[in-house]
């Protein structure tokens, strides 16, 4: 597929992805997808805990996948950085696609999993918190 099928915003995020990389000693790591389907997204979060308030202080991603997979990963990191965990959990895959100005229909399911990867990272963070309490 060529650049023609994607919105300008998708191309922008694909060409200049925001927050690429890993976080050493991340508070949570989430991964979604597999090699068979052709998309793997991995999200790392650093959480700033202030009393009961937990905010996403830093977020990074790594993605193996198509243009849509890279762009959704990139924009979700921008969208949720600074949000509380509860706020960020409300972000859906659909919100991510809309923020990109839409995705081609064929990409809506297989490559639009960035919000799910974030949820997995938050779940990982919370499980670690539970363990620390024990």
């Amino acid at each position: 597929m060529s650049a023609a099928m994607y919105s300008q915003k998708v191309i922008d995020h694909f060409s200049n992805p925001r927050n690429v990389g890993t976080i050493e000693n991340a508070d949570g790591v989430g991964e979604i997808g597999n090699v068979t389907c052709g998309d793997i997204m991995r999200i790392y979060i650093k959480v700033d805990k202030n009393g009961d308030e937990e905010r996403i202080d830093d977020i990074r991603f790594q993605t193996f996948g198509c243009g849509a997979a890279v762009a959704t990963s990139s924009i979700v990191t921008e969208m949720v950085k600074g949000m509380t965990l509860d706020e960020s959990l409300k972000v859906t895959n659909k919100d991510v696609a809309e923020a990109l100005g839409g995705l081609p229909p064929v990409k809506m399911h297989c490559s639009n999993l960035a919000a799910d990867a974030l949820k997995a990272a938050i779940k990982d963070y919370r499980e670690r918190q539970e363990k620390d309490k024990e």
Binding site: M1, S2, A3, Y6, I11, F14, G38, D39, F64, G65, C66, G67, A69, V70
Partner: peptide
């Protein structure tokens, strides 16, 4: 380690 459509697009 790289997906084909990303390569095409790049």
């Amino acid at each position: 380690y790289v997906e084909g459509e990303s390569l095409i697009l790049s």
